[in-house]
Every structure is written in structure tokens, then in C-alpha cells.
Design a protein around this nucleic acid. Structure first.
Lengths: 258, 258
DNA sequence: GACAGCAACTGGCTTGAGCCAGTTGCCTAG
DNA sequence: CTAGGCAACTGGCTCAAGCCAGTTGCTGTC
């Protein structure tokens, strides 16, 4: 927007949580390390103990930290999860300078690229509006439809819903806009801390148009995965649906055992 | 177990949350309905507003309910997500009081149950041993094979690998052993803090025996999901593979949008 | 040396109060 | 009739205090 960001006054609990998170991310607080106690934190920041407690709760909810009754709060030894985006993925982004898809293609000696099928401004389906927590006054989203290729083979189709305001802000309304790190690279450059939640996974037989775009041989099922990206405050700002060949999912997920 | 339940004194916040949850599950509070306000609840239960607030937070964390600033708290219209993998699973158990599967069945007015197909002590496949970080001296795992039913319909087959020591410890070697919260309820009672990592997801056509156990119509693909459960120190103690009808995944995952 | 007990820590949960910020609907002025 | 404004609701966040329940390590006793 044109408006100046008013250097938004941060809530005390967020501030404490952010400081701690930073300390963890820089390694100042190593995995396994004990955080300052709630009472200690409250003292340092001049807040009530409840507020420090709330900060820790935020981190614990995110899985960064784990509280043990009577002992203390500890940095988790292991990145807890498959948080595309926050942990694993953005690491990969930063280290390789490529999106996971492009990285995987590169590893396999292939060339990854994408094509923009369509870009539209629409009033979103109720489901999407709800997931993005759109208020009535901002019921307009950008829908971008991309198909990703490894060499000449289409691998997955991605549908991205982004609130219109954010889409304009980031230039994603322009089909030319791409980024070596993917759309999320753009978000990251804007200072978004993104976490991606996988909201649903299902498998089904493809619809006609999906089969066409993905050039699917008959009988091959597709995986249908929905992700939501949230910022550090838990606000969703993007909803993504992947539809991909189930027999090529190794590109996006670990390969199954056996 | 034979032990008497000591009529455990319930925390006020849990009590409120449980009452609300029951109201939601019985349909007394229909999807979309507004819950009593925080102040109202606090009044009714004779607690501080913060306590009522905490109760609502428990439900919201479980995805059963969603709070809207200035408007109220509403029962979610869609089945809440069971975010296998992204969160601490144990929260969901506690908040729902049932395993996700049983909960989902209950919501759909069905009866969830499981059958033990087999229990064996084996030397695990290399893949499993590696994931469970088994040393050479402890190369013995319990394999439990269960089929879960919603009413009479088989929905998924679960194969659980647990290091033999742990299995003996928890009584899981006994086919009679079950738990309303699932196997993980048993772990939790033993003080394990468990987190479940989703390691791989793929879809494929079923093998012959899978098709038989799951009574699959021809042409229906299965989802094959592997999870690993780790404790607070990141030590794995269980590996699980779900094989489920892809067209019924709504039972385990949120149904896809659209 | 082993151990029981205690003190001093830790987080868990609650209280009751207050202020802020969204939302809604009513009521009044035009 | 409409538009503006206000009052009364909602949840969001914080405070300062207290009690409870685990954990840890010290200390004095045997």
C-alpha cells in the first residue's frame, strides 16, 4: 500500500517471543539449551510473568521449544516437523538458492521451469476466503495457475490464492514475475517469515483437465495437497493447491520406504 | 486396565472445554453456531474470564472452534484439521479426548473400531531400523498390524513398528491392549511427549493383500503415509505406516477444498 | 557412603482487574 | 429515508498476585 508502515508497536509477548526465536535461529540458544525461566524473562522485559509465559507458549506452539514441568523450557533438539517453508524448505532455499522443485530437478540432471496457465482476479470460493480469513471488505484474490515441468515433462499444477492487496504489493499480478526461489522467495524478500502448513492431503483420480495439463497416462492417480502459508503472527496470506502425479511425488516429498 | 480411575479432579479450564466439546459433538452447538461469550462462560462456571478464555483456546488449538475479534467464537463449519505431523499430536488427543480417527468417526455418526491382524516380533527391515535408530544389539521390533473400521467399512491399515523393549514396557505385545486415545494414549500415560513427523506421503495402486483387507473396489488408489514418533529429545520410538483408501481420506485428513 | 528431608528452584493454572480494538445495531439529526 | 455517531457488545492482551506440583541439589543424619 501507499501508506507508510508505522513501525508497528509490537506486543510485549511477541517481542519476547521474537527475541527468543532469533536467539534460537542464530544458534545463540543451541538445541537442548535451557531458556531463561518465565520469572527471569518477565523481570528482564519488565512484564508480568504471564506475558513471558505467553511468549514461550507461542514458541512451544510452533514446536521450537518444549516446556518441562519443574525443569525448564528447552530448545528442541530436532526441527520438529515438516514445516515446508520455515525449517526445511527455507533452509534449502537459502543454501541452494533454488526452490525445492528446481533443486530436485537439478539433482536429477533435469531442467525445471514453470508456465503460467492463467492469472485472474476473482471473488474466492467460501472455503478459500475462510482459510485466508478474508473479511467481507477484501473479498478479492489473485489466482495464479502454474504448471511445473522437469525438462519437457509436466510434474505438477499449482494453484495459488493470494489476497489481492498482497498480490499487488508483491507484483505477483504480473505473469512475468517469477523468482528463483519461487513465490516464497518474493515473500521472504519482503520480510515475511513464512511457515507452511499442510492442511490436507488426498489422492484421487485426475479430472479431465488435470489429466490433460499433466499429460497423465491413464490409471495414474494424483496427489492433491493443500498448503496454507502463514506469517509469524499466524496470519494466513496464501493458499496453495498442488495437484501432482502420484508416481512422481518423490520430487516434493521424501520417497516412501521399501 | 484393571486400575480404578481415581475420578481425577478436573481443571476448571478443561472442564469448560470438555463441556463445550461435548455440546459440539452432540450437535447441541451446530457448525457455525456462536459459543457463549468469554464473560458469559466465566459467569456460568464461576471462574475468572481468563479461565474461560483458556478453555476456548484449547478448543481453538484443536481446530474445533474459531474466534473472531469483536464478533464471537464460532463452531467451525468444516471438520477440523488433524494436522498429522505439523503439531504436537498429543495436544489433539487431549483436546478431543479421542484419537483423531475415533473422533472423526463419532462426528460422522459412525462407530470407529480396530481389529488386530497380527502381532509379531521380528528383526526389522534395514529401513525401519535406520529410522528408529536401532543399534545392532537391539535389533528386535514389535510389528502390530491393525485394520480400522468405520462401522463395517475398513478404512485404513496401520502397521506399527516399535522397539521390542518399549513394546514390552507398554504392554503393546498384548493384542488386548487398546486405548481410547490410540497407541499414543498409552505412550502419553507413560510420560512420553510425542511428536509425529510425517516422513513420506505417496499414492499408488494397492497391492493384492491391501485390496483384500481394505475391501477396495477396483481402481481406487491408496495413500501410503509414513510417520515417525519422537519424544522430547528427538529420539524415535515408533514408526507407523498407514495405508488407506484414497477416496476416504477425509477420515484422517481434512477433505480437500472445492 | 547412603539416604531422607528440605529449600529453592522450575513450569502449570487460576484469579480479578483493566484497557484496547473490532463489530453490531440502534437511535438521532438531517 | 439516509448517514453519522454512539453504546453495548465481542475477543485480545496485559498486569500482579497467589497457590500448586514437579525437579534438583544440598545438608544433616544415620
Amino acid at each position: 500500500m501507499g501508506t507508510q508502515q508505522p513501525a508497528e508497536r509490537q506486543l510485549p509477548s511477541r517481542r519476547i517471543a521474537d527475541d527468543l526465536r532469533r536467539a534460537i535461529e542464530t544458534g545463540e540458544l543451541a538445541p537442548g539449551a535451557r531458556l531463561p525461566s518465565e520469572r527471569d524473562l518477565a523481570g528482564r522485559y519488565g512484564t508480568a510473568r504471564n506475558t513471558a509465559r505467553e511468549a514461550i507458549r507461542l514458541l512451544a506452539d510452533g514446536g521450537l521449544v518444549i516446556a518441562e514441568h519443574g525443569r525448564g523450557v528447552f530448545v528442541r533438539r530436532e526441527s520438529p516437523l515438516i514445516r515446508l517453508g520455515n525449517d526445511r524448505y527455507s533452509h534449502k532455499y537459502r543454501e541452494s538458492g533454488l526452490s525445492p522443485f528446481l533443486l530436485e530437478c537439478a539433482k536429477q540432471g533435469k531442467t525445471g521451469r514453470f508456465e503460467v496457465l492463467s492469472i485472474e482476479q476473482i471473488e474466492p470460493p467460501a472455503e478459500v476466503a475462510r482459510h485466508l480469513r478474508l473479511s467481507m471488505s477484501e473479498r478479492s484474490v489473485l489466482v495464479r495457475e502454474n504448471v511445473f515441468f522437469a525438462d519437457a515433462d509436466p510434474v505438477h499444477r499449482v494453484t495459488t490464492y493470494i489476497p489481492w492487496e498482497i498480490a499487488e504489493d508483491t507484483g505477483l499480478v504480473n505473469p512475468e514475475v517469477g523468482h528463483p526461489y519461487g513465490i516464497h522467495g518474493i515473500f521472504e524478500e519482503r520480510g515475511h517469515v513464512m511457515t507452511r502448513l499442510r492442511e490436507s492431503v488426498s489422492a484421487r483420480m485426475p479430472k479431465a483437465d488435470e489429466a490433460r495439463y499433466l499429460q497423465l497416462p491413464p490409471g495414474v492417480p494424483v496427489l492433491d495437497v493443500m498448503h496454507i502459508s502463514i506469517d509469524q503472527h499466524g496470519e494466513p496470506y496464501e493458499l496453495t493447491r498442488f495437484v501432482m502425479r502420484a508416481d512422481l511425488t518423490g520430487l516434493l516429498y521424501d520417497t516412501p520406504i521399501e
